[in-house]
């Protein structure tokens, strides 16, 4: 991993070496901040459930008032330059670094933006431009911030045993399919390190097994949710074909619930069911949820109505 990325990523393997019995102990004296993803607007449970769980574990949690959107969508459409993008992301890191030690990111897109911004800084040209932009606000690039960033799946996987001990309900064998999302599965950073590149990515399956779910393999497990860097804004009808195929594939393999770790994928997997009916003559019925929401319901935390709507019928049906 290159310098600017390595210095900001939380090394969960290292934590395991020292805190193998209870990795939560590592976080006890740390201030945790939750990164706000734009699409949590539609699924507030992604953050509230995670916050409730962390508080339940007696951890100190906050969000940053100064954090802006990660601007990934504008970089993808060439509406901002790489230096501007790096400045927006570095500015968020600088703010959050002042109030927290750990930043948990529950969205693949935001996580990629934060890391990609840092990756761009490895180029001298971009670093100079970014420095110049930040200087205007009397801020500077942090080569080695105190703040460490962790992806939600890496975090939940690290403390999965402790989560298991707190559950009020179990999934009781509910058939679950997983959706990781391209920006988790295909991170290019992994290609540099042959071990992480060839290692199977199955943290979500591990967590769901602890929640009591049984895992369903399906053909389109690794395919895109259809969002595709706003393809479902730009070429909506075509992109929905990808979403439809994915949902149908999970359904026909017998899955009763589709669990993801990304709010953007979740939006894509949930929001367009009616459009699918118009386009393809049928609308897949399988509910999709974010792993944070699912944990929240199983821990009996107060959840928003959208969360309840999708998960509760299943739980009632199972009489868990």
């Amino acid at each position: 991993m290159e310098g600017y990325i390595k210095s900001v990523v939380l090394d969960t393997d290292e934590i395991l070496q020292t805190y193998n019995d209870n990795p939560l102990d590592f976080f006890k004296d740390k201030k945790i901040c939750l990164f706000k993803a734009c699409l949590e607007y539609y699924y507030p449970g992604i953050r509230t459930c995670l916050k409730s769980m962390l508080e339940d574990f007696d951890l100190q949690v906050s969000t940053s008032l100064e954090q802006s959107c990660c601007s990934g969508t504008f970089l993808q459409r060439n509406l901002i330059t790489r230096a501007q993008f790096a400045a927006i992301n570095e500015r968020n890191i600088v703010s959050i670094n002042e109030i927290a030690d750990i930043l948990i990111v529950s969205c693949n897109g935001c996580y990629l933006s934060l890391l990609r911004g840092r990756k761009f800084l490895n180029s001298k040209d971009i670093r100079e431009k970014t420095t110049k932009i930040l200087k205007e606000f009397k801020k500077d690039i942090l080569f080695s911030p105190k703040l460490k960033i962790v992806h939600i799946l890496d975090f939940l996987h690290l403390i999965r045993e402790q989560i298991g001990e707190r559950l009020k309900y179990s999934l009781n064998g509910l058939k679950c399919a997983v959706h990781y999302g391209c920006h988790y599965l295909n991170l290019l950073l992994d290609k540099k390190d042959i071990h992480s590149f060839i290692a199977p990515k199955n943290k979500l399956e591990d967590i769901l097994t602890i929640l009591g779910g049984s895992i369903i393999e399906y053909q389109e497990r690794d395919s895109c949710c259809g969002w595709g860097a706003s393809q479902n804004v730009i070429h909506r009808d075509e992109a929905l074909q990808i979403t439809f195929n994915k949902l149908k594939s999970a359904e026909s393999a017998g899955a009763e619930l589709l669990v993801t770790n990304c709010p953007t994928c979740l939006y894509s997997l949930n929001k367009f069911r009616d459009d699918m009916k118009d386009l393809f003559g049928e609308s897949p019925q399988i509910p999709a949820v974010h792993i944070n929401e699912l944990i929240g319901v199983l821990m009996e935390y107060e959840c928003d109505k959208y969360c309840i709507e999708r998960i509760l019928p299943l739980i009632e049906e199972l009489k868990i």
Binding site: N186, L187, L188, K191, C224, W227, G228, A229, Q231, E238
Partner: peptide, 20 residues
């Protein structure tokens, strides 16, 4: 060129090292 999903599947599977 506006159809690409930027999903990175290709770069992951490409036998060459640095094609992004």
């Amino acid at each position: 060129i506006w159809y690409c999903f930027l999903c990175n599947k290709c770069s992951k599977i490409c036998p060459k090292e640095g094609i992004n």
